[in-house]
Design a protein around this nucleic acid. Sequence first.
DNA 1: TCTCAATAACTTTTT
DNA 2: GTTATTGAGA
Length: 802
Amino acid sequence: MPPIDFEKTLNAEQLPAVTHGEGPQLVLAGAGSGKTRVITYRVAWLVQERGVDPARIAAVTFTNKAAGEMKDRVEGLLGIYPLPSFVGTFHRFALRLLRAYGGKVGLKREFTILDTSDQLALLKKAMKKEELATDAYRPRSVLAAISSAKNLLLEPVRYEAEADDFYRRTVVAPAYRRYQAFLREAGGVDFDDMIFLAVKLLRENEALKKRLRDRFRYLLVDEFQDTNHAQLELIHEVSDSGGNLTAVGDEDQGIYRWRGAELGNILEFEKSFPGATIRKLERNYRSTQNILDAAGAVVENNVHRRGKRLWTDVGEGEKLLLYQARDEQDEARWTSQVIRGLQGRYSLSDMAVLVRTNAQTRAFEDRFLRDGIGYQLVGGVRFYERAEIKDVIAYLRFARNPHDALSFDRIINRPPRGIGAKTREGLVAQAAEAGKSAWETLEAGGLVGVPARGAKALARFHTQMAPVIEAASDLPLPSLLDRLLDATSYTDLFDPDDEDDRTRLENIDELRSGVQEFTEAHGYGSTEEDLLTAFLDHVSLVSDTDGLRKKPGVTLMTLHSAKGLEYPVVVVAGLEEGVLPHFNAQELPENLEEERRLLYVGMTRAERRLFLTTCRRRRIAGNYQDQEPSRFLLEVPERFLDTETSSELFAAPRPSWNRSRGSSPNRSRPGTSSRPGASRPGMSRPGTSKPGPETARPAAEHVYSFFGKEAPAKQPAGPRQAEQTLPFESSQPASSLTVEPVARPTAAARRLKRGARVRHASLGTGRIMQIEGSGEDMRLIVYFEGKGRKKLLARYAQLEVI
DNA sequence: TCTCAATAACTTTTT
DNA sequence: GTTATTGAGA
């Protein structure tokens, strides 16, 4: 392979980034500007031009998909040279360290990686033990709090010491402590632990750190905007405070704040890595200028960004097209029609429909099935999260390490063996007393305090499993799997005549071929035991999206999974308040910015054609809710956008009055939450066009003049205004929220809105958490002080607004 | 102890 | 609409 001519192959922006000398470097790479290219070429440049040994280079990213692509491309560029010693995800990097040196940070040798549902189950147990009511404190939120504590590298003790409010001190702290104790006892780590422990390991072992730093003289990090605090620290430890770090990222594509990612890491890169060189890639190779400008105009409304302007020389291209649908079925019908219309020029696999939430995919699936459009759904229920797969994996884990309490607990009664709660409790108690694992206790025999029937069942289980466990370390992986299935008659659980069961059996078959494949790919030169561990690690770290190859059919997926992908034709669906931006993100301006970035990511996936859709009403959790067009639509300059409205909307106009949403019950910040009567020229609604009270405020005009438009009569509390508002400060009096521009049925109903305080004759005072349906059918979920949540029919409840 | 049915609760995004 | 949880009965 001839050497690469870097100067010819790379553009003027990419070249300096690739040929950067010493010291930390941050490359701010806009969407489609050749981000991966910079990383892969830099690896090649280091090796070819600088004579760096590939073994001393590590490239880290977030998803397996991105890592795989990086690997392939580096491989192609390097030709005969060996690959860098590490190309993979942060978690895999950490895991590699922990498998080797986990003992130094208190891990058992064969530790197990928990997925979210395992975590949740364990946390529930921990909360029960701590006598924390799981209905008052939702395990999910407690888990989120624990996760962010770990992301901040706070151990339970420190977390407790720093907990400064009731919830953290009395709920999260004890739950965290107990959860962590259970976790270690059971020999498990969760995802957050992996990074945390890797940092800890390096901090506490100077010699090891030195070796690692020497090993990885060059560190390349992709998707830097998604790093959390723990990951930043890991980078610090490994790179010797950035010595030879090249970080690539785009602050406008940071969409993992909810997972602890700190945009500040990229925004304040120079602070963490003094003397850093900052470079920008603004030339885009993917999209038309219209798409870039429209997306740019949206994301420009974010305050937390460094700012850049993407350009291309492929030309303006066509305008974007916005469709105002009646509901999600209409939205799907129209999308399907557009897709069929474009089929001549593009193949189905060139098109993607992007949505905010997984639930939105249903309507599209239904429609595509009906219209005979092939589609590929990404995400949804993950393969490795299916119960039958988790069971079989648990058996594999158990075979590797019969002392693994988590796996033991999962399999002990699957298939049902008559080993119930009582029996298990007895066994666990006895094991705990002797300081042994449950399996050791079984091996020793002589159970006391266990019901006779249960003891018999346990003995049977022991006889069944013992020979397999015995043989486990010598059996080839595929045979081990078969032995396990055979010994346990696991597949007898399913009835081949039942459709669902048949799917389960097929899944198990698929797992079997997965095992086979893995063995063929990784089996050479490793012991069966190592191979088993590697396989188990593999299944813990991969997700379905990773295997995504472009298959025939339209791709249907969430905006999150779309990151890093590109399609000639893209539909971003569901541009409505509450969907995008999502309800749960309307509180904090920072969350709102993340929603905006999400839309930005979606829009910039498009190469040639970009379609947007919004629904007038949508079914949420079973019943229809009137929807408000997304505030982000206002941010797309009209000159880039054509609008089409559903004919069904003209045929069936409906007044929409139940529309204010967003302001939270406990923290109402009107400026950032709801946008009553949102409308834009060209988006006025047939049948409801009666203009509202003239309450135009200067801020609103600003929004419109900013985009070169006339301010409409109805005034939106626009995003600009929201962004300029500091957190916890209102930009306008709360009363302005109640200004409703369209006709409403009754004065009383008007004031029933999310966040409003109400009084009920018998239930006392409370706050409206959520509103479902409208008119006669309007239902309210009200949280009453001391009584909890109640669902009420507005028409009967006789609520008084206070 | 297990199974089935009714009911309550919950809906963001994922390594 | 779906899933997790609870309760009754076998």
